[in-house]
């Protein structure tokens, strides 16, 4: 993967110059169960007091794009208005039998699987609407998966600024350095969306990236 270099910075500066007053479309992308909705909820709760979606251990709990508009985040006297967009987890497979393991009946599992496939298609289509993306990865897992590579590659190809959010750093198995060394060309911020750990660091990085 080539470096996120001059072209991305140029696009980002171009956008910042012409769209300074506009709300920033901040997308949250990642594989299933990386903690995207937990992170969206944390950001939204911090600034609006309201959640974005339901969090669950069952994969593909988020099967539709969920938005929280006009979220004003503040950092060191600066303000940024964002439209926070939580997307369904990207996957290359959806097996209804995976839902049955969570004691969901067959009919509902098949329905969930259908909705999950549509959610993935929708999430990919929405890539073009994003102005900055938080690519959420589970810090306890190997980051060199095709889903992560596809997400990052597509953002790079579109010139969309991206911050890798290494989530779940509160867990014992978390390995932030593994993500940093897998993607040295990106900004990586380790957080625990559930515990709220280093969310301030993430806000700071968002400001540095888009302003």
């Amino acid at each position: 993967m080539s470096k996120q270099g001059f072209f991305s910075r140029f696009v980002s500066l171009f956008r910042a110059f012409f769209k300074k007053k506009k709300k920033l479309a901040l997308g949250i992308y990642g594989p299933t169960n990386a903690g995207k909705t937990t992170l969206a909820n944390k950001i939204s709760m911090d600034w609006t007091g309201e959640e974005v979606g339901i969090v669950s251990n069952v994969p593909h709990e988020t099967r539709q794009i969920q938005k929280k508009e006009n979220v004003i985040i503040k950092q060191d006297g600066k303000e940024l208005t964002i439209n926070l967009i939580d997307t369904p987890g990207i996957a290359t497979k959806v097996d209804y039998e995976d839902f049955i393991k969570f004691k969901i009946n067959k009919k509902e599992s098949q329905q969930r699987a259908r909705e999950a496939t549509q959610g993935i298609i929708e999430a990919i289509k929405w890539l073009d609407n994003m102005e900055c993306v938080l690519a959420v990865m589970d810090a306890t897992k190997n980051p060199l998966t095709q889903v992560n590579l596809t997400i990052l590659g597509n953002l790079e190809a579109r010139g969309i600024p991206v911050i890798i959010v290494a989530n779940k750093v509160d867990l014992k198995k978390a390995n932030l350095k593994r993500i940093e060394s897998a993607f040295p060309q990106y900004k990586v911020v380790g957080v625990s969306a559930r515990e709220g750990k280093n969310i301030e660091g993430l806000y700071k990085t968002i400001f540095e990236t888009v302003l």
């Binding site: 497979k93 496939t117 298609i121 990919i124 590579l149 597509n154």
Partner: peptide, 18 residues
């Protein structure tokens, strides 16, 4: 390339059945 990967995933999703 990444765009081909995204197209492939989209098509795979459209083809998923029992």
């Amino acid at each position: 390339d990444p765009k081909e990967q995204a197209v492939l995933i989209t098509n795979v999703m459209s083809n998923i059945d029992s």
